[in-house]
Each structure stands twice: as C-alpha cells, then as structure tokens.
C-alpha cells in the first residue's frame, strides 16, 4: 500500500507487521553519529534540524553520488545500534523508522507507547532503492560525511512493516511460521 511521509497518526496506527508499503514524500536520513548528536541537542534543550512531528527517519549512509545522480547507492543499515536513541526521538513525535534487523524490547515498547512504526527495507538492495530517491539534501552535520543528516524526497520507496504500534513483530512471527524442528 502507498504511505505518505510525514506519516499521520491514523496511518501509523493502522499499519500492521508484514504489510508491504511504498513510501512517498519526505524522509530524513540519520545513522550512528548523527543519532548521538540529535539526542545530545535535545538534551541541551535545542531543536532538532527537522520537524519531528510525523517524521520518518531512515538509517542509512549513502555511497557518493555519481555526476547526475541525486544520491549514490542507498540501502538500510542495521538498526539495533540506534536503539539507545530511538525512544527519545519517538517522544518528539517521530512516527516511522526505516532500517533492517531486530529492535530491542525497549524500542518495541516505545513504538506502542507513541503509536509509531518500524519498517525494514531490504538490506543490500541499495542500487534499486536509490532509484526511488528523487532529491537529496544535507540539512545537518555535513562534517559527518556519509553520516550527515539528509532530507530525501522519495517516490515508491519499498519497505515492509516489521514492528507495528500494536506490538506485532514480523521477524518473530516469521520465525514461528517458517522454523522447522
């Protein structure tokens, strides 16, 4: 199904683990070092470099764009490294996270509490995903290079809902369904 970003409360609450979505609109890129800075900024009482209400954060560090490309290869990075920072960002109104791999119990609980959703994109499908990025702009921490915060305009960004706002977990359900013992 088509999902518009920023994501409304109603849409976030209605998504279910296992749903295939195509995201259209504006998403923000931040990974390890940027997460530390974002949360440190909040700790000092400063504003985030983007409006967090309904925002979708994509855990990614692109390869350099070739001339004429809006972005280089742009697949998801592993999400658990962002777990310590995620509840703080969800409390600011962030509604969607995109990465790959399992989240902590604390993050899953925070998703339910704040009615937000964790999506996975297919790790390693980076050239394919880059085709859905129409515009890319650095909006904060340019000194971090591949880890700078970006604003992306995407059309049809492919993702799967892994953790929904009701506690549904695709990774756990998939293991139960497909394990053979």
């Amino acid at each position: 199904m088509r999902v518009e970003a920023p994501i409304s409360n109603e849409v976030a609450a209605g998504l279910r683990a296992g749903d295939a979505v195509w995201i259209h609109g504006i998403i923000y890129v931040a990974r390890d070092a940027a997460h530390k800075r974002l949360v440190d900024a909040l700790g000092r009482g400063e504003a985030l470099p983007f409006d967090p209400l309904g925002a979708v954060i994509y855990y990614m560090g692109p390869s350099p764009a070739k001339p004429g490309q809006p972005i280089g290869s742009a697949g998801p990075t592993t999400s658990y490294r962002m777990d310590p920072y995620t509840p703080t960002l969800l409390a600011q109104g962030v509604k969607g996270l995109i990465g790959k791999g399992s989240r902590s119990e604390v993050v899953k609980k925070a998703l339910c509490e704040h009615q937000a959703v964790y999506f996975a994109a297919v790790g390693g499908a980076a050239a394919l995903i880059a085709k859905t990025v129409q515009e890319s702009e650095i909006i904060a921490y340019p000194d971090l290079g591949a880890e700078a915060v970006l604003r992306l305009k995407v059309a049809g960004f492919p993702a799967i809902v892994v953790n929904d706002a009701q506690g549904g977990d695709l990774y756990e359900a998939a293991r139960k369904e497909w394990a053979r013992k």
Partner: peptide, 9 residues
C-alpha cells in the same frame, strides 16, 4: 531456522 531472506521468513 526459518529466518529467510532479509529475515522476513
């Protein structure tokens, strides 16, 4: 184990 491609089963 059932993990599957991308862990989706």
């Amino acid at each position: 184990l059932g993990i599957g491609p991308a862990g989706f089963g």
